[in-house]
Design a protein around this nucleic acid. Structure first.
Lengths: 344, 344
DNA sequence: GCACCGGATGAGAGCGCTCTCCGAACCCGT
DNA sequence: ACGGGTTCGGAGAGCGCTCTCATCCGGTGC
């Protein structure tokens, strides 16, 4: 115990158990085809020596790494201003843990950093990748595809080039938007405005589509493009009030935007929800619960989304559960639910 | 190019460059002691073949992994409700990238999961660890120490057992709290209350200490223990108003708590900041900027904290820059700054 | 009782890399 | 030109593991 020596090897375990390295290996890897008494002896040796397999040596021969990369590409610092990724990571982590896989986190640092990620993925250091690519013009999906690593995307990637058969998990942005707007309609609102997110992101585009599904003939002046930020929400709200002073509801593409809109409405003396009903999207708790009044919004199960991505990837990697090349479900969409608070 | 064959090995590079594997290796690892023309030839071969070193093979012999673990131990889902860890991760990632190291993320799933992390760290899969352990009674620091992996802590760990010489990076919670309270004093406030965080976390304890530094003789009824949540803040604020209706300022241990307090103050008709001035802590943007009124608070440079942790760990690992065993700075405390908004 | 069979075990060959020798080549001074 | 010192480059031994194969065992059918 006092020895600073290196960790025990399989060899040592085998010696202690009085078996060959091969048998020891078999036991360590599940023990199939080894008779019980031997299994027991090896197990005990492992225990006594505190043996932990050397992953590097193992990878060298198996070419598996029991590790997957999580790539988060977001130039903005904004990324972590919201709990979104954190929750996804949590979901991913849970699933990976259950499969004894490790999570290698790759954050791209600015626009030029993509090649580093590409090189890493192509380098075969991980068994697969979960990629969060939010922008339509993001070079990342392409890069990843070329790296030839099994990949699952978080959020529907833009339909560039070869992304049509990309595997992804997304929440039902469109359906959620529909639910939100229908809720406003049910409230008797007729002049319903929409503050969009940046439309180069599929989530924002899908939410806009959902809005249009319910309000196909809406006055274009009731739609203001924005950027998912509170400041953007304020700006858009001012614009909308100017263009359409008679609006009686706002569906904001996310909670941050909604909070900005709320502020402007208050400032202009419009009561919420009496004069103007407001619905957000995301159910970003620290925001949605703290607005004045608390925000009615659309919740997505973000952690579940992460978990699902991981599960999908892992099943993709597991040869024993290989899905047919055809008919593979390439997109998985999680339901969203409306959370009623005070704002609508 | 069409071949699905495995990636090129050093052997292949060497062959193509017309040198031995050893020389190729030397070039790949910096090229010291190899003459220019050969270096060039090898570089070119690497380029042409798209050679990427097999990290597993390399680790097997060097016993380095160029990877560090980031351990985040937080039983609550709360963790990612705030951008704190995200920003730290960003800082850490930046620093690691600059050193060609990878980031392996380990999230503990509940109380019983510590042993898994301990095993992983002890397993020698990573070169070092950055550990976020927020609770005084957290078993993690102990575990990590026993795993014998070089470690830097994020946030001052509790002074349990052998933690006295733990290396950590923290922000100046105490100093920040002092600044916050001094600001309130400068505003002429005399009945200043403090809503604490959970006092089993060093950050909360340190902030309380800072409060006491400035208000040593404060009425104990002006201190309410809470839990860093908005709901907790509401509860504490109600309690405080009941006990001390004449209070004219509140220093909340974090922004979430402050937002809850703000809501109660508004509900009770106290004007902020006229009747009661409020200061928070963290400068958690989505919250602090959105409260009504916007929150005066204490900002900490979280990303820098992450970066510093990584730098510290890496320099610890780098034998060429080995610091003396004695006199090693074990704690690094980053400054905090007061951000004035409208609430105080 | 003997050839035969199937399953459990061991021997050994690598996986791709680094790094320690060593020999070869080259520099200088004389 | 030649010896002594310096580099530079190559050969080869592993790092710890998995996995194929050969081996060996006990049992079965005739």
């Amino acid at each position: 115990m006092t020895e600073t020596a290196s960790r025990p090897t399989l060899e040592a375990v085998a010696a202690r158990a009085g078996v060959s390295r091969a048998t020891a290996s078999r036991v360590v890897n599940g023990g199939d085809g080894v008779r019980e008494p031997l299994v027991e002896r090896v197990r005990q040796a492992v225990e006594e020596l505190g043996y932990v397999p050397n992953q590097a040596a193992r990878s060298l021969v198996t070419r598996r790494h029991d590790a997957i990369a999580v790539v988060i590409a977001e130039p903005e610092t904004r990324v972590f201003a919201d709990p979104f990724f954190g929750l996804q990571l949590r979901g991913i982590s849970k699933e990976l843990t259950a499969h004894d896989s490790q999570l290698v986190l790759l954050l791209t640092e600015g626009r030029d950093d993509h090649s580093r990620v590409g090189r890493y993925l192509a380098g075969g250091h991980v068994d697969g990748a979960l990629v969060f690519s939010l922008h339509l013009d993001d070079p990342l999906p392409d890069l990843v595809r070329r790296a030839g690593v099994p990949t699952v995307f978080g959020g529907r990637p833009g339909w560039g080039d070869g992304n049509r058969d990309a595997v992804y998990v997304d929440s039902d942005n469109r359906g959620g938007a529909r639910a939100a707007v229908r809720h406003l309609v049910a409230l008797g609102r007729t002049r319903i405005a929409h503050i969009t997110g940046p439309l180069d992101q599929t989530s924002a585009a899908d939410r806009l589509d959902g809005f249009r599904d319910v309000m196909p003939a809406t006055d274009p002046r009731l739609i203001a493009e924005s950027d998912f930020t509170p400041a953007g929400g304020e700006h858009a709200m001012r614009e909308l009030l100017e263009r359409c002073p008679d609006l009686d509801a706002v569906f904001a593409a996310n909670d941050l935007t909604a909070s900005g809109a709320l502020r402007v409405l208050r400032e202009r003396g419009r009561r919420v929800p009496e004069d103007v009903a407001v619905v957000g999207f995301d159910d970003m708790l620290p925001v949605a619960e703290q607005t004045e009044p608390p925000l009615t919004t659309v919740r997505q199960d973000i952690e579940e989304m992460g978990r699902l991505m991981a599960r999908l990837l892992l099943s993709d990697l597991d040869p024993s559960a290989r899905r047919g090349p055809a008919g593979a479900p390439s997109g998985l969409v999680l339901p969203t639910t409306l959370v009623r608070r005070a704002s609508a």
